[in-house]
Computed example of a mutant assay.
Amino acid sequence: MQYRPGMFSEVSIRNGMKEWIESRFDRCDNPSIYNELPHEVKDVLDAWIFANILPGKRTSTRRSVYGLKTDFQRATGIYLYSGAFAGAMVKAGYRPMNPSNPSGRFNVITNKNGVG
């Protein structure tokens, strides 16, 4: 399924995604929640990260998970918890700057063509 901005809210209500999100609120910052995402959402998220995020070379390229997931939501219309986005980043090979806070910051740059 191809997503466009604003579409996910329609799709999520029909497919129970709203209930999925609400039922996992207590684990919203845990990166392992990525593993519980619906398959089609994981596919969109993984493809977006691959196309729009690159490793940073300096500490000045730090990006917060919250900012990155907001860029993703603007581009696709899909709302995610910070933990789910952080889990996807780790799966894609990126490492958090502070391992004790995986939903914090990553040293990455973004492809401005697909962000925002």
Rank of each mutant, 00 (worst) to 15 (best):
M1E: 07
G104A: 04
N113F: 15
V44Q: 05
S12L: 07
K42W: 03
A51H: 14
G16E: 08
Y94L: 13
S60M: 08
V65L: 10
G67E: 05
H39V: 07
L37H: 01
V65D: 02
G87Q: 07
I49V: 06
D26V: 00
S82Y: 08
I78A: 06
N113Q: 15
F85G: 00
L45N: 01
F85H: 01
V65H: 01
G114H: 04
M17T: 04
V90D: 07
L80D: 00
P96C: 11
C28H: 07
N15P: 02
M17E: 08
G93H: 07
E19K: 11
V65P: 00
R14M: 11
M89V: 00
P38A: 02
D29E: 13
D29A: 10
M7S: 11
Y94H: 15
P31W: 06
Y34W: 11
N113V: 12
Y81W: 11
S23P: 08
A51C: 11
L45T: 02
S64R: 04
N15E: 15
D26E: 09
C28E: 06
V11F: 13
Q73Y: 09
K57D: 10
V41G: 04
T70F: 15
A51T: 09
A51F: 13
M1T: 08
V11D: 08
M97E: 15
K69Y: 08
V108R: 07
V90R: 11
V11H: 14
N35I: 02
I53N: 01
N101H: 13
Y94I: 12
I21K: 05
N52Y: 05
G67A: 10
G104L: 00
R4I: 07
Y79D: 05
P96N: 11
P55L: 06
L80S: 01
K69E: 06
R27D: 03
K18I: 09
L37Q: 02
L68P: 01
I21F: 10
N30L: 12
N101M: 14
S100F: 10
G104Y: 01
D43A: 14
V44H: 05
D46S: 13
P99Y: 13
P5N: 10
G6E: 08
R63P: 03
S64N: 06
V90Q: 14
K18Y: 10
G56C: 04
R95E: 15
A75R: 03
F85I: 03
F106H: 04
A88P: 00
G87S: 13
V90K: 11
G6H: 09
A84P: 03
I49N: 00
H39N: 11
R24Q: 03
A51I: 06
R95W: 14
E40F: 10
W20S: 04
M7L: 14
G77D: 01
R4S: 10
Y79Q: 07
V41S: 04
Y94G: 10
A86Y: 01
W48L: 00
K91E: 14
D43S: 12
R62E: 09
S12G: 15
N111M: 09
V108E: 08
Y34E: 03
T110F: 12
F50T: 09
M89H: 00
R74I: 12
P102Q: 08
P38T: 02
Y34F: 15
R24T: 00
D26Y: 02
A92P: 02
A88T: 02
I21E: 06
S32N: 11
T61P: 05
N107M: 14
N111G: 09
V115E: 06
N113T: 11
S23R: 05
P5Q: 09
